[in-house]
């Protein structure tokens, strides 16, 4: 299944920051990117979601001209991207998956060096470095070397090094991998602030919760192919899955279960003697219908929760496997 909201042409409500057309990349006999298309509008946070090995990092590397590719076109801000497109490169920031800093330099020295690759003026750089340090919350660690920082703080430093020069487009390649929840939230908030300041953000992750939380639009990819694209709501609307209802109850009998399964909104049910799990099809009154049925069967109901479908449900329905398989 290959679904796309808005068709093949870029949407009219924003100029394109990045345009990838029919990108093909092979590693030997293995097809890593298979006619891959991508349109990112200026000013949006665009999520690239897919399981490990789906081609997210490879596509980023091709976009940045770090890797050669077999065929396709890549345009950044309307211009062809090449290894020597230095003007374009000066408008791009990268936060790589692996922490890429000098172990021998302090936090401030690292950020200053990477900023200096883009900004020559020392005075301007100083204020940019200060801003970047403040954005990622490393003010108290300016003089620390990376070896003295925790994993989460290192990730923040990694981000600061990639964004200090205030690029127009920033690519985040799984920036929260192996990060504690506190640092993760700080990172996600920082990304949203960068976007609010005008930067276009391309965010790759296999954490669907993060993508749902911050991305305006999402492209789901698998095996190097474009699976689906749209806003989170649009993607969820593409599939037949509805919410997942969980009910704590101790006295459900076989008749009640059969009646539940008979409801037109119910896709599947599961009951372990304590908790009833009901996966619904898409619909507006699912929770009301299920609770009504339980009440009529005379079951005593405890805690009830209803969770809308996730991107994992979307991925599952479109590819037949879960995102984290």
């Amino acid at each position: 299944m290959n679904a796309k909201i808005g068709g093949d042409a870029p949407a009219s409500d924003g100029a394109l920051a990045l345009q990838v057309r029919h990108l093909v990349k092979r590693y030997g006999d293995s097809l890593v990117l298979d006619d891959f298309d991508l349109n990112v509008r200026q000013g949006e946070i665009f999520g690239l979601l897919g399981p490990n090995g789906s081609g997210k990092t490879t596509s980023i590397n091709c976009i940045l001209s770090l890797l050669t590719y077999d065929s396709g076109d890549i345009k950044v801000f309307g211009h062809e991207m090449t290894p020597t497109a230095y003007v374009l490169k000066s408008r791009i920031g990268l936060v790589p998956q692996e922490v890429a800093v000098f172990d021998e330099l302090s936090v401030q020295e690292n950020i200053d060096y990477f900023c200096s690759l883009y900004v020559a003026q020392k005075d301007r750089r100083k204020s940019l470095v200060d801003e970047a340090i403040a954005l990622v919350g490393l003010e108290d660690f300016r003089k620390y070397r990376p070896g003295k920082l925790s994993g989460g703080l290192k990730r923040r430093l990694n981000i600061a090094c990639g964004i200090a020069h205030k690029p127009d487009m920033i690519l985040f390649d799984e920036p929260t991998a192996a990060v504690d929840p506190q640092s993760r939230n700080a990172i996600l908030e920082g990304i949203q602030r960068l976007n609010q300041a005008g930067a276009t953000v391309i965010y790759t992750s296999h954490y669907m919760e993060e993508v749902e939380q911050i991305c305006d639009r999402v492209l789901i990819m698998d095996h190097g192919r474009h699976v689906a694209e749209g806003t989170v709501d649009e993607l969820k609307a593409m599939v037949s899955s509805g919410e997942l209802i969980t009910v704590e109850t101790l006295d459900l009998d076989g008749d009640a279960m059969a009646a539940l399964r008979g409801l037109p909104t119910v896709a599947s049910t599961d009951y372990d003697g304590k908790t009833l799990t009901v996966r619904c099809k898409s619909g507006a009154r699912n929770l009301v219908d299920v609770l009504d049925m339980l009440e009529r069967s005379g079951a005593n109901i405890g805690h009830v929760s209803s969770n809308p479908p996730t991107l994992n449900d979307v991925f599952l329905e479109m590819t037949g496997k879960a995102l984290r398989d």
Partner: peptide
Amino acid sequence: VNLSALGVRVSVSPSS
């Protein structure tokens, strides 16, 4: 690029 993460960062910069 192929030898270090720092190489990736340097290579995407406008430094020749």
